[in-house]
């Protein structure tokens, strides 16, 4: 991430250290992860210890220190999705992609994550793939979903 872009994000929040979470989320959104250099830069600019930024980066589900795949698959494991079989879908994806949640395929094509609830409970089980919701999923529909999303 360029210094200019980081400066823009810092200035967007008036270099206010209490806005650190908004800044981290903006970086995450742009880069799909939090580069170490960006955290060090923020630490220096805002006068916050790097330890604190690292703690935040590992505490929150939405922040990641490793780059994501080109296609991001989120499996909702909320209660409504769970009772409707989200587990089976997750297992199928793990098997299909040969990765565990939190990991990226070796070709960087897919990353797999679970999310506690997407708030689309009526559609359960739900997947969020590259920002698009797939409702009433079943293990049978996984192949076509992967096909479609990687096109």
């Amino acid at each position: 991430m360029k210094e200019k872009e980081l400066e823009n994000i810092i200035n967007k929040y008036r270099a206010d250290p209490t806005e650190i979470m908004n800044m981290l989320l903006d970086i995450q959104e742009k880069e799909k992860f939090l580069p170490k250099t960006a955290l060090s830069y923020l630490s220096g600019k805002l006068g916050l210890p790097l330890t604190r930024l690292y703690q935040m980066a590992t505490f929150y589900e939405a922040l990641s220190l490793t780059p994501s795949g080109r296609n991001q698959i989120h499996v909702c494991t909320g209660t409504a999705c769970h009772v409707r079989g989200a587990d089976g879908i997750l297992n199928k994806l793990e098997q299909k992609l040969s990765i565990k949640p939190g990991q990226v395929t070796p070709d960087q094509k897919f990353s797999l994550k679970t999310v506690n609830c997407l708030g689309a409970c009526a559609l359960g089980p739900v997947l969020l793939v590259n920002g698009e919701y797939y409702g009433h999923m079943s293990a049978l529909k996984i192949d076509s979903m992967l096909q479609r999303s990687s096109e």
Binding site: G78, A80, C81, H82, N116, C117, A120, C121
Partner: peptide, 8 residues
């Protein structure tokens, strides 16, 4: 911060 899974 609606965090309860299964609620929206």
């Amino acid at each position: 911060d609606e965090g309860d899974p299964g609620a929206y």
